[in-house]
Design a protein around this nucleic acid. Sequence first.
DNA 1: GAGAGATGTAAGTGAATGCTTACATATGTC
DNA 2: GACATATGTAAGCATTCACTTACATCTCTC
Lengths: 231, 231
Amino acid sequence: MPPSLTRIPSDERRERILDAALRVFAERGFHGATTRELAKAAGVSEALMFRHFPTKEDLYTALQSHCCQAKSGEKAEMLGSLEDSTASLVMLVHYMMAKMLRPPDRVPAPEQALHRLLANSFIEDGAFARGFMENVGREFIQKIESSLAVAIASGDGIESPVQSRAGAWFVQHFSAMLMLNEMPGQPVVPLAVDRAGQVEQAVWFALLGLGIKPAAIRRHYHPQAFALLMS
Amino acid sequence: MPPSLTRIPSDERRERILDAALRVFAERGFHGATTRELAKAAGVSEALMFRHFPTKEDLYTALQSHCCQAKSGEKAEMLGSLEDSTASLVMLVHYMMAKMLRPPDRVPAPEQALHRLLANSFIEDGAFARGFMENVGREFIQKIESSLAVAIASGDGIESPVQSRAGAWFVQHFSAMLMLNEMPGQPVVPLAVDRAGQVEQAVWFALLGLGIKPAAIRRHYHPQAFALLMS
DNA sequence: GAGAGATGTAAGTGAATGCTTACATATGTC
DNA sequence: GACATATGTAAGCATTCACTTACATCTCTC
């Protein structure tokens, strides 16, 4: 071993390789990424990379489960401290839309890379996306679902054929597609001139779709206040 | 030239290669598809394929513009014969959702392949998806937009911050994500047990999101009748 | 029927790809 | 301090890749 390169414990090296692989796989896709690129991005030789991950495919799947574990349980505390109410529902929906409609340069690189991996999974067998949604999205969905049920019971929302569970996933799907739309450098469909108005419209669309009454939305949703709160 | 293979005019051969390439590129992605596979799927030698399309990338982009032209103007007449009204809006939204929520084995293979190409484009630079949306989705969006405006003016819909244009795209985004969700063999998020109920809920969500009043939806939307009409 | 040009293929080409081999250095243990 | 083991690399290996070359056959024109 050349003395120029620091000696590093095995598991830490493993993580560094995974971190680098996330970037490369996200940019190039599975087939587009070469093992040379992957090794170079991690700052190691191919041989060492292949010692940690016997095949390129092993690295890819290891990366996927790594992402699932890393993100899991990140915002459980925030959700736990939130009561089930119309206000919470409005809050959650605004949070989702604002997050998904961030301009691409405001999205941290690792998060963007994760999004690309997820999008790729939809085109492949969907296994990664399925696992990710189950581990990470579930609490979020459950919170929306229970808040929606309370909102309807309290008279803030109407009874409609849209069941709470399905409605919660609809909101998630809708916001995911808003993000997908912005994933290329230039958005596929340019929605509006100003981001803030865009978020506000998306929030209204989602809340109305869930059956929340316009009066209740007006009462609970103050976009500019929310924007300040979350920046 | 071996006598076993029929001689075919150049432009027809070109189309056959494109048809085969659609299948292969959709299944494997750009980097995953090899020129051998592409040629074999088209039933020609690589050399001939390269005579028609100088590089693999040329074939890919030619395929994309081929798809745009092929689909364009397909249902203009149906949309043209539709008046701007709440009924039309309900009809259009149901049509979209029913179409996007078909079980994968009921979606014709070329259409499914096109969807995969589109999804890939979102991960890449989005240029193909952008072109496709402009050429193909525009009329649809415009019809939803104008019908929505009429519905609101007639009192069937409320005035909300969601503008007609944005709302129309929201519906399109929402339905697109429903389809993406079903694109892998097994859906990423299993929404409901029965398809019909799933479509009905999606339609309600979209119409409510646009600001259509529940009473108006109930008046114009009769899922089972629509399902019969369209089968 | 002969020349021209289009349609077609078999058999490569160099370069790149995923992966291995052979070997060197560091570290912990007794 | 020497042995075992883990960390690391340089230099390939066989294969596959996108793409060419050289050549054969068909069809149209005159």
